[in-house]
Design a protein around this nucleic acid. Structure first.
Lengths: 337, 337
DNA sequence: CTGAAAGCGCTAACAG
DNA sequence: CTGTTAGCGCTTTCAG
């Protein structure tokens, strides 16, 4: 028993392949009796259609591609769950692709998509991505792309994001309220939409108090955790060290806590800390971490809905939309008692 | 410009489709000059082969399916990275499927695979999975399945696991050495291979000290974190509460720490804790968490290699192998000073 | 060295 | 109601 095809069913039942095909798709052209016979045999032999044959024939794969920087991150894990929850309903499949924060990977993945592997794409760009030609190329092939979380300003496409600017502002404001006067900002990329927006909010809040960060207080981090740890440590060892830290992505919490411990700086007494993070265990860190928590599941869900809608009526007006779902500041001990 | 096909190239160059196809695959039958012309045009038009047409024709998809319970878990995230690192080299694609720990999902995913969507499968079973018929069905269709981490004893297939029994033993022994005399074990499923093996090791270590857990000290947890929290709390509120806890999976660390805090039980003074976990931030928990850390990346890598080898020579002897890659105990404060 | 033709499994006109 | 046929894009004999 290698592979049960529609032809095998046809031969077994002395029917034509088209009759089988129609029966399986419950066509009105086929008699109830025949349908029963076909369905019964299909079930018995465990018939499963070959998805590639259908795709080839039908000119659509019913696959959607999800392109993200990394899977070991609770924002993206949750977003995937949100995407899946919507997409499965509609009989689509989710293909997850990881860029590992590298533009070259992102490029080659999208390039491959031009072959028709997926009907549409949900994309959160890498930290290296500055140009959007690879995305435009794909859209030129009539493959819709919906950005989620990390977007690219110059590409005109649907975007599902959170209120990064406001969150950056709120978080910084909170640190100011708690008495901080020298707040550092940790970014993983100057180009990255989320990081840039959050920083804008941060700068706005500071300037509201007549403050401006020194160049040293904006720390460029990377994908390498040892490097990040060293950067943070160096910052905290300066004579004039910050009394507050705003970390723009989840993975930066670790280096901050480690460095503080290493240098015997108490959080929040010596340094107050807030991190953009969806980590559940933020509450059991030492001390519990104040976070900006993003609506990860919702963002995934919304992005998927928007994409599916776009696939439904490819011919309709390409009214590009931007949806903003707010994040929330969850105050815990790391930002003060 | 909708879709560039091989035929489009053929027409543009006044060649036949077969010549194009051969040129693209660098066949010795084609002249250097023609190859150049074809490659040049293909590059210029951004030609990408339709993977479904190739799959249909070639009878292999070059896709491998990765079926896991959950993606929001650092073991699985890391394992995915390991899998990817191997599989990409060989020009295969990775399709990730989530069972959400439900057997019904696992079943229907594997059933779908019978249609030929993937050439082989890497599987880590759900906590509900007890029977392996759905797996046997797939293998009967000549689709190789390699288990990783969570296996099923009665299915004869390649298995890449860690030394769960030994780890359970070592962890428990460590708690005993630190003075614990009543150690609880938190499991998420009695059937699950990893949970069961780790528990065997735990029981062995206990009995080495003439100890036996009371029924109350083996706590059945679930996929629901509130439920787990309540279970743990209940356990810690009993008159005779444990002085040590061994948690069998990563997600159980949170409920344990939360419950201890809620009940004002100090870790490690009142209760010592060890958790099977790959969380990087274990070090910055309060207190830092002693873990059994699994070789997640390695397990993924090995599983993928074994699967690819099986795909290479489907006709070769089906010598089933079991690879065991050891975990390591990383001692931190939660198990004593 | 190049081309014609068959066929992978499925769907959808179109005939009967 | 059922069957015949063509074709999705690609690979691969087999002929020229």
């Amino acid at each position: 028993m290698k592979h049960v095809t529609i032809r095998a069913l046809a031969q077994a039942l002395n029917l034509s392949v088209s009759t089988i095909s129609k029966a399986l798709r419950d066509s009105y052209e086929i008699s109830e009796e025949t349908k029963q016979r076909v369905l019964e045999l299909a079930a018995r032999l465990n018939y499963m259609p070959n998805p590639y044959a259908s795709s080839l024939r039908g000119k659509q794969s019913r696959n959607i591609g999800v392109v993200i920087p990394e899977v070991a991150d609770s924002f993206f894990s949750l977003a995937i769950n949100g995407i899946e929850s919507v997409v499965k309903e509609k009989g689509y499949h989710v293909l997850i692709y990881l860029t590992h924060e590298q533009f070259a990977n992102e490029q080659s993945i999208l390039r491959e998509f031009q072959g028709g592997r997926v009907d549409g794409v949900l994309l959160s760009v890498s930290r290296e991505t500055v140009s959007g030609q690879h995305i435009l190329d794909l859209m030129a092939r009539d493959i819709p792309v919906v950005f989620f979380d990390r977007t690219l300003a110059d590409v005109e496409a649907d975007k599902i994001v959170t209120d990064d600017f406001d969150s950056g502002y709120t978080a910084t404001q909170h640190l100011l309220d708690k008495g901080c006067r020298q707040i550092a900002y940790l970014t993983i990329s100057e180009n990255l939409s989320i990081s840039a927006q959050r920083m804008e909010g941060y700068l706005k809040a500071l300037s509201g108090h007549g403050l401006r960060p020194s160049r040293n207080d904006i720390v460029q981090c990377s994908a390498d955790s040892t490097f990040n740890y060293n950067q943070v440590k160096k910052m905290l060892q300066r004579k004039k060290r910050p009394d507050g830290i705003l970390a723009s992505v989840e993975k930066l919490a670790n280096p901050v806590y480690q460095a503080c411990r290493e240098l015997s700086l108490a959080i929040p007494e010596h340094v107050k800390v807030i991190c953009f993070s969806n980590l559940e265990i933020a509450t059991i860190l030492h001390p519990p971490l104040t976070t900006i928590t993003q609506p990860a599941f919702e963002i995934g869900k919304t992005a998927a809905s928007v994409l599916l809608k776009a696939l439904d009526k490819k011919r309709a007006r390409p009214s590009v939309q931007e949806v903003i779902i707010p994040s929330s500041l969850i105050i815990r001990e790391s930002s003060g008692r």
